[in-house]
Design a protein around this nucleic acid. Structure first.
Lengths: 173, 173
DNA sequence: GCTGAAGACTTCAAAGCTAAACTTAGGAGC
DNA sequence: GCTCCTAAGTTTAGCTTTGAAGTCTTCAGC
């Protein structure tokens, strides 16, 4: 759902094809095939994050908070992690994690306790309300994702997943 | 380049497979195929942005500034756009655009002038130095992207590009 | 059992973003 | 040719994140 009305102004965002053509004009040795993949990845992701943002907003949380809930659920029962590990997974500084946890504790999505066995450490735990928020968000997200992939057959989905995973393996190793 | 040394601490980021398995445990009606695609997309994009960030940093600019340069080049000769149109393309508020242009004018990457034909409007233009930065960044970026796709054959690249484009069309229309 | 050092947050100051109020130029209606 | 309205940017206040400095455990060595 972009501003599909052409009435907004003179400069609409170029289409993917226009974008690639323009880059080729400006940078001669560009591989259009590579550019198509990379640009599509970037644009897709931006659109998806906007969509997720709209969904989490209807639940009264932010995408940032949703990320924390995801990490805690991912950790599995009993849904506990240290702030440092959370920060690493989310790609944040420890300072940002401290503040984010502050807010989420105030909203009662998570708890923060000192680890009695090792009082340097802190343990962040998911509350029931937090787990429920994650479930609600998951419901919305999976519906959106299914809709996104609607035009792809099961076979095509398999191929796409496999190709993306190979790229990911290359970047993460 | 993640923290591939396991020495960093107890909680390493789960692999994609572990992540999907965990979500399935916690959310029964999850389609693993869909989840693989969506999660791979998200993780890929995060890694890529980190990589781009390292590259632009070596050129003395930020990813944010690079985005502005890209938009101006994309507009084509004579590389001029209004702040409002820039903001729309980059997904920023006009306020953020004002500040970002302030910084880039100070760094002499762009110019800001009032449109004499319509004095409500402002015109942001690319300087020669700005265009050169874009070229330098493009050089680094294409090398990285080619490396990222190294394991995919030409045919596989074509398939991937086509599938991603179909998803993008669905989200952008 | 003291002391120094390392580790795990937290605090503080500064950068960048958003939302909302404000300023100014251009047009429409009378 | 005023007056109101709209559009385009800018300014301001508040929030989130970062980087650096600070605090408080724990542990290793003596």
């Amino acid at each position: 759902m972009p501003d599909s009305d052409g009435t907004t102004g003179p400069a609409n965002e170029p289409t993917l094809d226009e974008q690639i053509a323009a880059y080729q004009r400006e940078f001669a040795d560009l591989d259009p095939q590579v550019e198509q993949i990379v640009s599509a990845l970037g644009r897709l992701n931006r659109r998806m994050n906007v969509a997720y943002g709209r969904q989490t907003a209807t639940l009264g949380i932010s995408n940032a908070e949703w990320e924390v809930l995801k990490a805690l659920v991912l950790a599995g029962q009993p849904y506990r992690m240290g702030p440092g590990d959370l920060a690493k997974q989310l790609g944040l500084t420890p300072a940002a994690m401290t503040h984010r946890i502050d807010r989420m504790v105030a909203e009662e999505l998570v708890t923060r306790d000192r680890d009695e066995a090792n009082r340097v450490r802190v343990i962040v735990g998911l509350t029931d309300a937090g787990r429920q928020k994650w479930l609600d968000a998951m419901e919305l997200a999976t519906a959106f994702e299914e809709d996104l992939l609607q035009d792809l057959s099961t076979k095509e989905r398999g191929i796409l997943g496999e190709l993306l995973t190979r790229l990911l393996v290359r970047v993460e190793s």
